[in-house]
Amino acid sequence: MKAPKPTRPGGYVPRDRTWQPAALTPAYKTSVKRSPQSALLSFPTTPSEETGPVFGHHMLGALDNDLLHNYAAAGESAIGPRIIVRGRVLDEFARPVPGALIEVWQANAGGRYRHKKESYLAALDPNFGGCGRVIAGDAGGYEFRTVQPGPYPWPNGMNDWRPAHIHFSVFGAGFAQRLITQMYFEGDPLIWRCPIVGALPCREAVETLIAPLDMNGTVPFDALCYRFDIVLRGRRQTMFENRREGL
């Protein structure tokens, strides 16, 4: 039987804005003057949003996904609980997003960032830079090694502390999928006290940002594993396209 002619894929499914944080969340004070007040202008995606830059494995250095060592002196290693973070990048139709670029950044085990504007009194670790990156494989899988970051105080309310977290920047296939988020750690009591986490509209949304401990991924006598799957916007397939996955 002759396969139906492939047609141009459809656009990206609109973002569910009731699931995403609002621009204005007054408990997170900086949002007050940085939040647009007018309604967003909604349009279906065009080729400008359906295309996106491509990042090849060739650009990656051998230690890019090893934050324990990518800033450390030879023979040294960052200080703190050794962890592996791994997961998959999927779209809303559960299709893998191979080639997705993930950039991560974080504080060190004491909760201190290596940044000019950082003033927390916790010590810098001379062997920890705090950045890494990885490109998702064919099944959307990714993995990096790091230290578990510490919680830290920040100027918002008089006694606000960020839960331990790792920042993620993600590029999918189309610029419409562009996303920056943060991963939290299972069991951290600070998660539910944080005004930035509190920008999310519901408990279910917060829970999708909490990585569970994954003993199956743990390397005995080496590193604990946390599992963090990432879901990017999905792109519609045309109704009669001859493929099983997706719409």
Partner: peptide, 23 residues
């Protein structure tokens, strides 16, 4: 269907991850 991962702010230290040489 899966739900899109919710966004969180890039924060003040976004440069560490995205423009590390700059910072």
């Amino acid at each position: 269907y899966l739900k899109e991962t919710p966004s969180q702010t890039a924060g003040p230290y976004v440069h560490i991850g995205c423009t590390s040489n700059f910072i």
